[in-house]
Simulated scan of single mutants.
Amino acid sequence: MELRHLRYFCAVAEELNLTRAAQRMHMAQPPLTRQIKQLEAELGTALFRRHTRGLVLTPTGQFFYEHALQILEKVDTTVAATRRLARSGKQLLGIGFVPSIFYSELPVLIRQLRQKEDIELTLSELTTIQQVQALKAGRIDIGFGRLRIDDPEVEQEVLFDEPIIAALPRTHPLAGATPTLADLAGFPLIVYPATPRPSYADVVLGLFRRRGLKVTVIQEANELQTAIGLVASEMGFTLVPEQVKRLQRDDIAYVPLAEGHITSPILCSRRREPPSELLCHVDALLRPLVDRHRQG
C-alpha cells in the first residue's frame, strides 16, 4: 500500500462518485476503479457499497477514511515543515514530555533553547511509552517522562526524584491533614492517564497494591488537567508529583503524604547512540537546571 492509494481512496470517499473522483485526481475512471478494488483486496474488506446513484462508505470504509485522512494530513504537515526547515537552515530538535513535567524545569529549558536562532523546536505531549516509540522512530530526539522502560535502543537517566502528594477537594476531610495512603484508600481515586498503559496510573495503583490496600478507582482520565478538574468537582482524590501544586486552584488542596519517602522519578530518555552536537548543547543547558532543583 502506498500513499497514492490513500489519496485515491479519500478522493472517492469524499466524492462518492468514481467519475468525479477520477476527474479530481486527473486520471481516467478505469484505473481508479482498479486501484480501489486492489486496496479492498489488500485490506480484505469492502470499503464501499455500490448503488445506482453512487457509492456509500461501509462502516470499515468510514473507519479507514478517518485514519487515512489523519495519515495524509500528517504527511502533508511533515513535508511542509521539512521544506520550511530546509529553507531556514536550522537544526530540528524534537522534545517529548509528559504534562506534569511542564510545571518546573522544562519551561526554562525550552526558553533557553528558543533563544538559539539556529534551532527549530517541536514539542510533543507524549506518555513515556509513546516517547520511547517516537525516539526509536526518529520523531523526537529527547524525552522527559516518569516511567522506567526497558528497551535496548533507548537509554534513560534519572534526573531527580520528586515527592508524590495528594490533590484533594478543598472541602475534603483530609484537606488540612498529612494523610497516609491507608487514610486515602477509604476514598474514591482518580487516576491518569487512562491510556496507553502501563503509565503513571499504574505507578499510583502500585503504591496501594504493594501495601495490601484496596482502593476504588472511580474514574480514569486521559489528562492531568482533567483529573484535577474531577477532583475539584469532589468526585475523588488523585496523587500527583509535587510540582503540580504550582497549578494553583481555590477549590484544590495539595497535601503531603505521611509517607514522605514516596517519590516519582523525572527520567530523561534518549536513543542509545553517541549524542549529536545539538544534544550535547541541550545537556549543557539541562545540567544546571537539574542541579538547581536538587539543591532546592
Rank of each mutant, 00 (worst) to 15 (best):
E2I: 14
R7V: 08
Y8D: 11
F9H: 11
V12R: 08
L16R: 10
R24G: 00
R24K: 12
H26S: 15
A28H: 12
P30G: 07
P31I: 09
P31Y: 01
L39W: 03
T45K: 12
R49P: 00
H51Y: 12
T52Q: 14
T52F: 15
G54L: 03
T58S: 05
P59E: 00
P59D: 01
T60Q: 15
G61I: 06
Q62M: 11
F63V: 14
I71A: 15
V75Q: 15
D76I: 03
T77S: 15
T77F: 08
R83N: 13
L85S: 09
G89R: 14
G89M: 12
K90H: 13
F97V: 06
V98M: 08
S100M: 10
P107F: 02
V108A: 13
L109Q: 02
Q115N: 08
Q115R: 10
K116E: 15
I119A: 02
Q130H: 04
V132L: 00
Q133P: 01
L135Y: 00
G138S: 08
R139M: 07
I140Y: 01
F144L: 03
R146Y: 11
D150T: 14
D151A: 06
V158M: 11
V158I: 14
V158W: 00
E162H: 08
I164C: 06
I164D: 06
I164E: 06
I165H: 07
R170K: 14
T171S: 15
L174Y: 07
A175T: 10
G176H: 06
T178M: 10
D183K: 12
A185P: 13
G186N: 08
F187A: 09
P188I: 06
P188G: 07
I190D: 07
I190P: 10
V191I: 14
P196I: 04
P198T: 06
V203C: 06
L205P: 00
F208V: 03
R210G: 04
R211F: 04
L213M: 04
V215N: 07
T216F: 12
E223P: 02
L224R: 03
Q225P: 02
T226I: 07
A227N: 03
A227S: 12
I228G: 04
G229M: 08
G229N: 14
L230P: 11
L230G: 12
V231T: 13
G236M: 09
F237H: 09
F237G: 02
F237N: 05
Q248Y: 09
Q248L: 13
A253S: 13
P256V: 03
A258D: 09
H261I: 01
S269D: 09
E273L: 12
E273I: 10
P274A: 15
D283W: 14
R292Q: 11
H293N: 06
G296N: 04
